[in-house]
Amino acid sequence: MQSLRIGFDARYASDHFPGIGRYITSLLPELSRLTGQHRLFVFTNIGQTLPTLTDAHVEIVSVRSSPFALTQQLELPFLAGRLHLDLLHSPYLVKPYLLPCPSVVTIYDLLPLRYPQTLSPNGRRFYRLALRLAARSARQLITISSVSRDDLAFHLRIPRERIAVTPLAAAPAFAPQPPDVITDMRRRYGVPRHYVLFVGSNKPHKNIDRLLRAWQRVLPELPPSLSDTTLVVAGKFDPRYPLPTVMAAGYGLQERVKVLSHVSDDDLPALYSGALLFVFPSSYEGFGLPPLEAMACGVPVVCAYAGSLPEVVGEAALTVDPHSMHEIADGILRVLRSPALYQFLRQRGQQRATLFSWRATAQATLAVYERVAATV
């Protein structure tokens, strides 16, 4: 394979794009280790924080335009031409659309089409336009699950062959944590000894309301040794939607639900590791990283049989109907009442998590680059 000059637009690694930022900061170090025979140009805005990339074949390129600025439609094509790029990878659908080289774009899911109420009318119009422009201007699309690939192929009416699947992975930090680390985390966040954990946002598809109603049914049925168990709801919450604290109070659960709105990424492995069980009743996911992170930490998982989640967890989790609070409650109780099922899911989950790695994601991504370059 000839040496390629690859551009990677890392400007989306910011607090505004937490999920995309994790994708970029996890993928880039592995990608830089694999592209030794190529040149990798990483586009960043001034003041951005990225993992240190010290490889000699990697060059950081400063870009004045922000990801949503109209000026990027001129600045990035200019930079791509000046650097003689063979291709540019945009990890978000808002991208430069007229480039002097082929482009690759990552589109994670079609949540705004599945749940249009998450955007304003103007936001929906902008999303649909940006989605069409991204699909038309890119030589190849990348997505993160087979379910998302099928969604993209159907809604954009493009061949599935134009869409590559590169699954995500839990970061290496997600592993069972020592007891003293878990104890320290519990002390700092006020987390009780026995808890069932949910990690995610409060957007409607995450199903927190139905989870809380299921938790009402669980509480009187808990095994005696776990009668003090609390539900911990952790994540970054959007004020446009009902907050978990308000929902819990509405059901009279404020004493049995602990809400954590700002958990440091560094503390997440300990938060997972200390949980009795991880529950994730989301009704739609492009991939579903939290269940995989929980499994990597050795925690049994109960999650929805919806979206890409069955593809991620395989037979290593107990799956339930996300639209049934009865099934969600029953799934939680089945695991907490059965030590045998608990151990089975714990072991199978850790085994399942090892099948996903950012090295494999980077290898699949590099293969996309090389295929695109070979068709020029």
Rank of each mutant, 00 (worst) to 15 (best):
L276Q: 15
A69P: 03
P100Y: 10
Y12T: 12
G123F: 10
V147A: 14
H155Y: 05
A360G: 00
R160Y: 01
V299M: 11
G252N: 12
G252V: 11
E30V: 09
R82K: 12
Q48S: 09
P112H: 13
L131R: 12
L341F: 01
D209W: 07
A353F: 00
L88Y: 01
A329C: 02
Q177I: 00
V302I: 08
N207R: 06
Y23K: 13
V312G: 07
Y12A: 11
L93S: 11
L85I: 06
R132T: 09
V372R: 01
I107Y: 01
W358L: 02
S65W: 09
L70T: 05
R82G: 07
V313R: 03
F174G: 03
R5F: 08
I6Q: 14
K206G: 11
E59G: 04
Q37C: 07
V63N: 06
R139V: 04
D267E: 14
G298K: 10
F278G: 01
L70Y: 02
V196F: 01
D265M: 15
S357K: 03
A10E: 13
L156S: 05
G7R: 08
P224D: 12
L366Y: 00
P96D: 09
L113E: 11
Q72G: 05
A164W: 01
S261R: 14
A214I: 00
H155M: 07
R125A: 14
D9Q: 15
Q343I: 00
L289W: 04
Q2C: 15
G250M: 14
S225F: 06
R193Q: 08
A164C: 04
Q73L: 03
F78H: 09
P291S: 15
Y272K: 15
P167D: 09
L83S: 08
Y305N: 13
G235W: 03
A316S: 13
V302F: 06
Y241D: 12
A367Y: 00
R114V: 07
D228F: 04
F68A: 12
L129Q: 15
R193T: 04
G123R: 10
L28C: 13
